[in-house]
């Protein structure tokens, strides 16, 4: 800090002061949203419902992308060359998460991962979860396969894939 400055403002509060003395107003804003899936993700979700992962190819950079989109952000040109990808892939990275969003601990870790989808360009993956595996056995580079919900339970959502499990 500047040697010319001797005193710094700001008043720290203890947890107790914060909870008992200071917080006088507590309000929970209620906001609800209904998101349109859009053109590209709308089709992606419709195909998930049928048990397929669909991607889209750019004629200029030749990338096959997933999730699909209507415009290639590299080439800034419209895309409409759709194609089915595999429901298998490779773990690009993962975590073993022992806390919930509000920092409560959980016993069995959740296993989020980025999974490079077979049929898409190298390095092109989606975020999902891993399951049916001992957390300590998960490795980057591991081959995995989607575990789908039964057809009648699918809703046209990313959660139509329950998780990815190790490929035998």
């Amino acid at each position: 800090m500047s040697i010319n400055i001797k005193k710094f403002p700001g008043t720290p509060l203890s947890k107790e002061e914060f909870e008992k003395k200071v917080l006088s107003i507590y309000q929970v804003p209620k906001l609800e949203y209904a998101w349109d899936a859009g053109v590209a993700i709308g089709r992606y979700l419709a195909e998930l419902k049928k048990g397929h992962i669909i991607g889209i190819r750019c004629p200029e950079c030749r990338r096959i992308m997933v999730p699909p989109r209507v415009v290639c952000e590299w080439c800034f040109r419209p895309l409409n060359d759709w194609g089915y990808l595999e429901d298998t892939g490779t773990v690009n990275t993962f975590s073993l998460c022992y806390v919930t969003w509000d920092m409560r601990r959980v016993k069995e870790p959740e296993i989020p991962a980025v999974i490079e989808i077979d049929g898409a360009s190298p390095g092109h993956g989606i975020m999902h979860r891993l399951g049916e595996i001992d957390p300590q056995e998960v490795k980057i580079g591991m081959r995995v396969k989607a575990v789908w919900k039964p057809e009648e339970e699918r809703a046209g959502a990313i959660t139509d894939i329950k998780y990815f499990k190790p490929l035998e």
Binding site: W35, G38, Y44, P67, C97, W101, H128, I158
Partner: peptide
């Protein structure tokens, strides 16, 4: 992403 990621209940640490 509200449609392709949030249904997986991510948190920022991920």
């Amino acid at each position: 992403d509200h449609t392709t990621e949030r249904p997986l209940r991510p948190n920022l640490l991920w």
